[in-house]
Design a protein around this nucleic acid. Structure first.
Lengths: 411, 411
DNA sequence: GTGCACTTTCAAAACGATTAAATCTGCAGA
DNA sequence: TCTGCAGATTTAATCGTTTTGAAAGTGCAC
């Protein structure tokens, strides 16, 4: 039995060898130009060989043949045959290995161009273990902040030969978990979790699979997770001081949803800034919104019933501020004469609101850059003990037209 | 020589056979519960077996072993060993093949859950030829229309087990070509080209590689390219009629960039609608803009120097209209009293401009749905002669607050 | 006990690349 | 003339799946 198995094996091995020989041996003494032409014809002529006398390989060859005739996708073998080298040499050439001589390299590139060949990423990933894929998970792709962030991130990634997988969690932990799962299936080399503070449910999966992570604003005690610290404090202090300088003292804050760490940080930084400016904080002037435009409209509506109303509002993000702008307009309040409004993010749109929004700028480009660098660092030096790093992205006030001195006469 | 080669082969085949035996044979007579436990231990115990007496397999086994110990990623073999079946059975179970008995299927799923295993997409793609990836190329991801489109598309795709690759061309043919190249490398099963009319440079590559395409608004004489026809006509007629009913006759049109087919279609539909309403078209009231907010501001500026100014403006997209809103505000014109403005797209934001924008709605959800169905149809029935289809997405007017009767007194 | 359909499971080839190991090719030195 | 040593090239194993064709059970009639 084991004897017969051995013999069967021998036969199979032989067949395999024979199949591997399907590319024509060719005569190596032909001049260069000519040899190219002849081997090209040869490569395309493979289907013609399918009527060979060996029965067992028919199915293989014919399948191969049919694929070649429909034949849109040249593979590394096609290139090798055309360039008359082994597939290893082709692979080396493509990957810029110094082990390939000038002469062959030229021939291989010529063949690659002629066939318009490019390697199959899946095959590459499978054997090399590197997918050159990064995932980026954002909170809500319809908030303009995130497309702008994605755009920057994509640009940088592509420039470095990476591809990105985008998902938006819509603040739903279940969706988030599925995003992560899908990214793991695709073997991403790292994930930028740009949800600004609801990441807990995903961390387990990623950490467990040993996938690098970068988090905005949430530190994780894992060597695989880098962190981007966001210094809202600077910008928020500037904002408060700006209002104080203009003569405001009744300053409200429309916060983000408390389930986001970032929202809480922003709110706390506001409180600190107010304290530093020696201004009182009215409890009913701090309202939790949801970082959406509608939320801003609704949030500002809460002030309507108040006896003592704020003369200025700082918002946890720009969308909320735009909502306030709208709510004020509907209520007949003029901005900035009757009400000053400050946003946070400085989305592209902020420049074009009516009036143009004074806001705290959080650079998407900086953030994207930090996120990419963090991931790349970890992905490319998996054993570097210092691969985990912290990045700092700062904020600053951008003064536009939505802030002015309060009209003392009126309130 | 060929004799010795044969012998060498035989030996190698044997070695291979031996290696394949690395998972323990186990005794098949154990009761179910117990067997699970014992095989679990067995699977994890593989590293212990590395001190075997066969020298040639050392490197293989030990590498395998070290991977197992660092072992974050269980593969199909791990599952098979744990469930005490062959990897083929595991594969069948996962893919719901009817050839697996109830009893085994249960055992396999149990193992899968226990290991938190999921298949490697790259390996799957490689062998099955199906990547379950669709590409979507948009014009400019920072135009809110597109994130909304992407969001819908992604939702539908994920619900059907597909993943998406997003790229924005930024109206640059070179960037576009690179996007397509990257998508081809990842072996996408189809590409939705949502650039609305500059697709020519990419078609070649995709058609040549036999990749299904769906185009918005541009017919291609290829059986692999489905088309989504956009009926702007309905919405634009409604818009013109709406303005006419309000009493407008001096209607301008801020067009999109002429390099986009869609922009030209929209403009032509406007002309047709004007003719149908028996209104004169002033040449200087039709201006080519670039579909951006800034472009809208600039475009509207052209009217300032005119002796005879329009009382209403229809814009080729919402961003342009928002630009007009801003330009009018800066100029001191009140919307809608002094100027009526109509956009096109109905991006989420349109509801929240000041005043809320009257606009022609082009449903992202419908568009995304059509695009996905078109691709799926083609990807899953590669030989169906009717796989190429045409979809129609219509438009309709949404009246909000940016349109009103012209103040006759003033102009 | 044998033979024959019919299930069920298994083993091995294949997908398209990378890469370690083996082989080949010149050429210098004994 | 032969050996040894680089450097250039090729060979073959490998990644983790799917998918066949073959093997092994199973049940039943003869």
């Amino acid at each position: 039995m084991s004897q017969s198995a051995q013999i069967r094996r021998g036969l199979q091995a032989l067949r395999q060898k024979f199949r591997a020989r399907y590319r024509s041996p060719g005569t190596s003494s032909q001049p260069d130009l000519h040899s190219k032409k002849s081997s090209y014809i040869c490569a395309n002529a493979i289907p013609l060989h399918s009527h060979q006398n060996c029965i067992e390989q028919d199915s293989y060859v014919s399948r191969k043949a049919s694929r070649k005739t429909a034949g849109k996708t040249p593979d590394i073998r096609t290139v090798a045959a055309l360039a008359k080298v082994s597939i290893a040499t082709v692979s080396r050439t493509i990957n810029g290995s110094p082990l390939v001589s000038e002469r062959l390299s030229k021939r291989v590139w010529q063949a690659i161009r002629q066939l318009n060949y490019f390697p199959n990423t899946h095959a590459r990933t499978l054997v090399s273990g590197r997918s050159r894929l990064f995932g980026i998970i954002v909170e809500n792709i319809t908030n303009p902040f995130f497309p702008e962030l994605i755009q920057s991130f994509e640009e940088i990634a592509v420039a470095h030969g990476y591809e990105i997988l985008v998902s938006s969690s819509n603040s739903d932990p279940i969706v988030l978990t599925q995003c992560v799962r899908r990214m793991l299936e695709r073997k991403v080399e790292g994930v930028a979790v740009m949800t600004f503070g609801e990441e807990e449910p995903v961390l387990d999966q990623l950490v467990h699979r040993n996938v690098p992570i970068v988090l905005a604003e949430f530190k994780l005690d894992d060597p695989k997770a880098s962190t981007i610290l966001l210094d809202y404090s600077t910008g928020i202090h500037e904002a408060v001081n700006h209002l104080v300088t203009l003569g405001h003292s009744k300053i409200a804050f429309l916060a983000g949803p408390h389930k986001l760490h970032s929202a809480i940080t922003r709110e706390n930084d506001f409180r600190t800034a107010m304290k530093a400016a020696r201004l009182p904080i009215q409890k009913e002037w701090i309202i939790e919104c949801d970082h959406t435009l509608k939320g801003g409209v609704a949030g500002f509506g809460n002030f309507r019933s108040l006896a003592k109303r704020p003369s200025a509002v700082i918002c946890s993000n720009d969308m909320t501020a735009i909502g306030v702008l709208r709510a004020a307009y509907l209520e007949g309040l003029r901005v900035p004469q009757d009400l000053s409004v400050i946003g946070l993010d400085d989305i592209d749109f902020a420049e074009f609101t009516l009036p143009a929004l004074t806001t705290i700028c959080l650079s998407r480009a900086d953030l994207a850059h930090a996120a990419f660098e963090a991931l790349r660092q970890q992905a490319e030096n998996p054993n570097d003990p210092n691969r985990k790093r912290e990045f700092l992205v700062s904020t600053r006030l951008v003064v536009r037209a939505s802030t002015a001195a309060p009209s003392t006469s009126k309130r």
